[in-house]
Amino acid sequence: MGNSVIARRLGLLAVLALCVVLLALVPYFPSYYVRVVDSILIYIILAVGLNLVVGYAGLLDLGFIAFYAVGAYAYAMLASGQFDIHLPFIVVLFIGAAAGAIAGILLGFPVLKLRGDYLAIVTLSFGEIIRIAINNADDLTNGPQGIAGLDRASLFGLPLTTPVHFYWLLLVLAIIVCAGVYYMERSILGKAWRALREDQDVVRGLGINTTTLKLLAFALSAAIGGAGGVIFGAFQRFVSPESFTFQESLLVVLIIIIGGVGNIVGVIAGAVVLVVLPEILHFAAQYRLLIYGVVLVTVIVLRPGGLVSPRFNLGFIIRKVRTLWLSPSKT
C-alpha cells in the first residue's frame, strides 16, 4: 500500500468530512440562510420526484406543481381551523402522498396514451385546472385569500416550528428520496423506464405494458410531490393558490434540465443553482429577474446537456468511493 493510496483515502475522507461538517453547521447559520437551504432541499425533493417522469421515463410533465398543491392543501384542510380538523403531521404526510398518487393516477390513466408534446400540454392544462379550481372553490379552500394559521407541526413529540427543525426533517427526507430513487433507478423497473425513454415501441414489442410503466412513474412522482406539498404547508403555515402557478411547474422542470436530465447529482446541483441565484441577485433590485433570465439562457446555450455531465452521477461517486476504499490498486 503506497503513500499515494493513503493520501487519496485521506483526501476522500476530507471531502466526506467537509460535506458532513457543512451539513451539520447549517443550523448555526443565520435564519435567512437556513431558510434558503430549506428551500433548496424542498426543490431537491420535488425535482428528484419529477425526474422519475421526465428524466427516466422520458415523459414531459408540465403540471407537476398540481400534486404539490394537493399535498399542501391536504395539510391546510386537515390540520388547521378551516374545518377544525387537527390531524398530526405524520398522518397528513402519508395522506398527502397518497392523495398526490391518486391525483397522479387519475390524471395519468386517461392521458398516458398521448405522447410527447400532447402529454406536456394535457399535464399543463391539468395543473391550471387544479389551480383555478383551488382559486374558486371558496367553501373548501378559502379561494384566493388562501388558508392561514395552519397547525404547528410536530413529529414524534419533537416540535417542527423553526427553519432549523425543518432543515433536519427535509435533509432526512431528501436523503431518503434520493436513496430510494437511486435504488429504483438501478432496479429492473428503472431499466424498463430508461428503455421506455429510448424507444417505446421496442419496449412494447418486448411484451411490457408501457401504460402501467408510465402510470407507475407518474404515481410515484406525484406521491413525492404530494409529500413535498405537505411539508411546504407545515413550513409556511399558510397556503394560497399563487404558490402553485404554471411558473412553479416550469421551475422544477428547469432544475432538472439545468442540472442534467435523469441524474440525481445533476438535480441537486440544479436546485442549488436555481434557488441560490435569485437570492444572490437581490442586490440587483429590479434588474434581478432580467439578470436571472440572461444567466439562464446563457447556461442553457453554453451547456445544453446540463451543468453536470451524465457520467458524474450518484453511481459513479459510490463506485469511486468503494473502489478507493476496498481495492485501491484498481483506481
Binding site: 416550469l250 428547469l254 434540465i257 434581478r288 429577474l289 433570465g293 439562464l296 439562457v297 442553457i300
Partner: peptide, 18 residues
Amino acid sequence: RLAPMLSALGMSIVLQSA
C-alpha cells in the same frame, strides 16, 4: 427538444423583465 424549450422559457423571462 427540452433544451430549446427551456431556452425559450429563459427568453420569456428576459423579455418580460426587460
